[in-house]
Design a protein around this nucleic acid. Structure first.
Lengths: 139, 139
DNA sequence: TAAGTGTATTAAATCACATGATACACTCAG
DNA sequence: CTGAGTGTATCATGTGATTTAATACACTTA
């Protein structure tokens, strides 16, 4: 049996200026973190996803491999690639992304000798546009 | 006259895994933003900085060019490259960096369907280590 | 058996980045 | 004027990561 029909990725535009396999991995990581890909969900086959992204199977493979390395995916030869069933996949995906984001702003803030809260507030004032008042509180 | 003795950059380690010219530009941008390079300060000559960084003059040129593009530097043939005298160089450098940082966390937060404040708090909880309580306030 | 999975290998093309060498244009102290 | 020190331009070359392309193999299941 072909089990379940695999998950259908939303329309993606790949930016040629960034590594394709990184972008693919990132999109999937985000989908998992956003709880739109529950544990056990079957991903498109390497060949299918490659075809729909106009990319080589090799490239998709590399993305899948990276995510498997992170423990977000698990693959079974002959069956397919699935979102890991281990408890807390979403949580781990979220944690990784959030931690990186925090580290990033912390590093930038440290560069400028500012606190994170002040950095973000300044960013909002400086054409940050959008909503989000960015501040006046500890971060 | 050779005017003033040029600014002496702190010891830098360049990461081979990232574009050298980007790193150089970034470091200088940060120095300006952190008010450690007042307007009018003379930068090392292209050749000198290149030599001290064990890099080709071409690479330093590219970094300087990028910063001139941003209006942070101005160069005078035969004299050297200087931090722009226009009012608010530090402010503009800060603004650019802060805006980019904010945009970054906003994009990541949006990906996860979270608010910036929640993203950062989560990052802090997830092994963010360090100080900075990351939260419980609007950002 | 056949179709569909993941996986591995190899060769080649591409591209941004960096080097190295050289030459030119300009400014200024002497 | 001269020469040393600036920025600037150009060209050929090298390098490394990325990607393509074409195969081939191993496994699972209808």
């Amino acid at each position: 049996m072909t089990l379940d029909p695999p998950w259908q990725p939303p329309a993606w535009e790949l930016d040629p200026s960034q590594p394709l396999y990184e972008q693919i991995a990132h999109r999937i990581r985000v989908e998992i973190a956003a709880s739109r890909l529950p544990g056990g969900t079957r991903l498109p086959s390497v060949r299918d996803l490659a075809a729909s992204l106009r990319v080589t199977p090799n490239t998709v493979m590399r993305a899948y491999a990276e995510l498997e390395q992170d423990g977000l995916l698990e693959t079974f030869r002959g069956q397919g690639t699935f979102v890991a069933r281990s408890s807390g996949v979403e949580a781990r995906a979220q944690a990784r992304i959030a931690r990186q984001a925090l580290e990033h702003v912390r590093r930038v803030a440290a560069d400028l000798g500012m606190r994170v809260e002040d950095l973000l507030r300044l960013g909002a004032e400086a054409g940050g546009g959008e909503d989000d008042d960015a501040g006046s509180h500890r971060v």
